[in-house]
C-alpha cells in the first residue's frame, strides 16, 4: 500500500449548503464550452474535485496509487461528455457518479485496464522516499502523521472487504459528501434503501475496524 497525502490544499469556492456559488456555476458554464477557456475552467474544477475523486476511487480500489490513474480517466471522460450535459447545478453529483461507476468497473475484474507503468512505480517510490525524508526532517509531529496515514490505509483495506452494495453508499456519503437523495439517484434506489445500506455498511466496517483499530 502507499503513503497518504493528508495535506489538502486550499480549495476554490465550493457549492455550499445553500446551493452552488455563482462563481462555481460560472466555472461549470465556462467548462462546458469547447474552447481553450473551457479547458482552463474545467481544470479549475479538476482542482476543486481531485481530492474527492481520488479518495472515492481509492476507497473502492483500496489502492491510492492506482486511484490516481483512474481519477485521471474520470476527469477525461467528464471533460469529453460535459458539453452535452445540461443542469449545471448538478455538475458535482454528475461527476461523482462518473467517478463511482469508473471505480466500480475497475474493481470488477477489468484487469486489462489495470496498467501499472514502471515509470509510475519509480515515481511513486521516489516520492515515498521524499515524503519519508520530509516527515523525518519536519518537527511537526511526524508520528501522528504516520499514524494517521496508517489508519487511513487500514480504513481503505476494511472498506475493500465490505460488499460493494454497502460500501458504495458509505463512500458516496462519507467521502464524496453527497446527500441521501443524490446517492439514491446515483445508485438508483429509494431513500430508505440508501439509509439502510449506509447503516449496514457502517456496521460492517465497525466490526472490521474494531479488529484493526481497537
Amino acid at each position: 500500500m502507499s503513503r497518504d497525502r493528508e495535506n489538502t490544499p486550499p480549495r476554490p469556492p465550493e457549492p455550499t449548503a445553500s446551493g452552488p456559488t455563482d462563481e462555481y456555476l460560472l466555472w461549470v458554464a465556462e467548462a462546458r464550452t469547447e474552447s481553450a477557456a473551457g479547458d482552463r475552467a474545467f481544470t479549475r474544477l479538476v482542482e476543486l474535485y481531485r481530492s474527492r475523486v481520488v479518495s472515492l476511487v481509492a476507497a473502492h480500489l483500496g489502492d491510492a496509487d492506482q486511484a490516481e490513474d483512474v481519477a485521471q480517466e474520470v476527469f477525461l471522460k467528464a471533460r469529453a461528455a460535459l458539453p452535452s450535459v445540461r443542469e449545471e447545478a448538478r455538475f458535482e453529483s454528475w461527476l461523482l457518479r462518473i467517478a463511482y461507476r469508473t471505480a466500480i468497473d475497475h474493481t470488477r475484474g477489468f484487469w486489462w485496464r489495470r496498467r501499472v507503468s514502471l515509470e509510475r512505480l519509480a515515481e511513486s517510490a521516489r516520492e515515498t522516499a521524499l515524503a519519508g525524508a520530509a516527515v523525518a526532517g519536519a518537527g511537526n509531529d511526524p508520528e501522528s502523521t504516520l499514524l494517521r496515514s496508517e489508519r487511513s490505509s487500514q480504513v481503505r483495506k476494511a472498506l475493500r472487504e465490505v460488499p460493494e452494495a454497502f460500501r458504495a453508499p458509505v463512500v458516496l456519503r462519507d467521502i464524496a459528501g453527497l446527500s441521501y437523495e443524490e446517492i439514491g439517484r446515483i445508485l438508483n434506489c429509494p431513500l430508505g434503501t440508501v439509509e439502510s445500506r449506509i447503516h449496514r455498511g457502517r456496521q460492517a466496517l465497525r466490526r472490521k475496524l474494531e479488529k484493526l483499530l481497537p
Binding site: E6, T43, S51, R148, R151, S153, V155, R202, R206, L213
Partner: peptide, 22 residues
C-alpha cells in the same frame, strides 16, 4: 466514529495532478 474514520481517510492527489491531466 466509523463515519469519521471513513471521511478521515481522504487523500489529495499527488502534486501536478492538473498538469498531468492537461
Amino acid at each position: 466514529r466509523v463515519a469519521g474514520l471513513v471521511s478521515g481517510s481522504m487523500l489529495d492527489a499527488r502534486p501536478g495532478f492538473e498538469e498531468r491531466f492537461a
